[in-house]
């Protein structure tokens, strides 16, 4: 009997793990945004002194992981599992970091929702009694994502209003069975939802149905409504996706109102010309582990729902005319 299940598909942890430490690092553009003060480190350049942006991305994630370890006064050897992911082919960034850390490693891919998958799995591993401490991390880099998913950075392209800007940044956190810090109390894992949208220039609209599906299932399973949460944080539906998300929730009978914020909209100001907003695995990771956790420590939020969303396509499938499958994982984080 799966005693920790609630409703049709929500997990309610019996001894919810704590987020005992978290660390973030972002690039210069994110460091000019409204959340600048919430990040632990802002790099001076995109390349961060490295020869290639791939190396820079790897260092961002490595430093986020190291930062979380330092804050928790732990060594890599104290961690039982490392769960990490990024946007690059073969998730090389996280695997390279795992090589450095020397901890048993599970590589994850859920595009921009990777940190959600990591937190949910990490919490399950700890609550299941398989580990005491788990490190989760995710990263993305504007330059590496552009070249893999789109065009050379210096190419003359006129972006559309729905285009999102990949965040250069990384976030990592340590989940532990005991200690201080907010707790991951529930998780509703996402189904792959595909409403047949094919426009890779508007991923927010493609992901909104996945976010709505997971959130509605979560509300039904737990008997909660938006009013039960201080914040519902999606990442990253951006401007267009958020609009569609509100519409879908409204159709399902839920009014989000001011409860909803989106990591992609929080990280850049409209003056920064970042299109519809930020995106990338590092976006929700750095916003959640920086800004949002700090707000929780200060007692501004007591119970939040985090809903990272990912578009599970590749440039190849898009060129072949396939639609964009999407996913969203919901996590409830409560003050510890």
């Amino acid at each position: 009997m799966a005693v920790k299940r609630q409703g049709l598909g929500t997990i309610a942890f019996s001894s919810p793990p704590h987020i005992i430490a978290a660390s973030t690092i972002v690039g210069p553009r994110e460091g000019e945004g409204p959340l600048a003060a919430s990040f632990d480190t802002v790099t001076k350049t995109d390349l961060y002194g490295e020869k290639t942006p791939e190396k820079a991305e790897y260092r961002l994630l490595e430093e986020a992981c190291q930062g979380a370890l330092t804050k928790a006064k732990l060594e890599a050897g104290d961690i039982h599992y490392y769960l990490g992911g990024d946007l690059l082919n073969q998730i090389v960034t996280s695997s390279f970091v795992a090589r450095q850390l020397g901890i048993p490693y599970l590589g994850l891919y859920a595009a921009c929702a990777t940190i959600g998958e990591g937190l949910a799995l990490g919490a399950m591993i700890i609550d299941g009694g398989f580990a005491d401490k788990v490190l989760v991390g995710a990263a993305s880099h504007y330059h590496t994502a552009e070249r893999q998913f789109r065009y050379p950075v210096e190419l003359n392209i006129q972006h559309r209003g729905t285009n999102q800007t990949t965040v250069t940044g990384a976030g990592a956190a340590i989940l532990a069975s005991s200690g201080q810090g907010p707790r991951v109390t529930q998780a509703t894992l996402g189904k792959v939802v595909d409403y047949g949208l094919k426009d890779a220039n508007d991923l927010g609209s493609a992901m909104a149905p996945a976010a709505a599906d997971t959130l509605v299932r979560h509300f039904q399973d737990t008997g909660t409504t938006p009013g039960d949460y201080d914040l519902i944080l999606t990442g990253d539906l951006a401007r267009m996706g958020s609009k569609m998300f509100h519409k879908l929730l409204q159709d399902a009978g839920y009014v989000l109102g001011g409860k909803h914020q989106d990591a992609g909209l929080l990280i850049f100001s409209p003056q920064q010309k970042a299109g519809a907003g930020g995106s990338g695995a590092g976006c929700i990771a750095s916003v959640l582990f920086g800004h949002v956790l700090k707000e929780m420590y200060q007692g501004r939020y007591h119970k939040i729902l985090v809903l990272p969303t990912g578009a599970l396509f590749s440039p190849l499938t898009c060129q072949q005319g396939e639609s964009i499958p999407c996913i969203a994982h919901a996590l409830v984080i409560e003050e510890g």
Binding site: G161, T162, D202, S205, M240, K243, M244
Partner: peptide, 8 residues
């Protein structure tokens, strides 16, 4: 269709 109609 709604996405198409609401696109900026």
């Amino acid at each position: 269709d709604l996405v198409k109609a609401m696109e900026p």
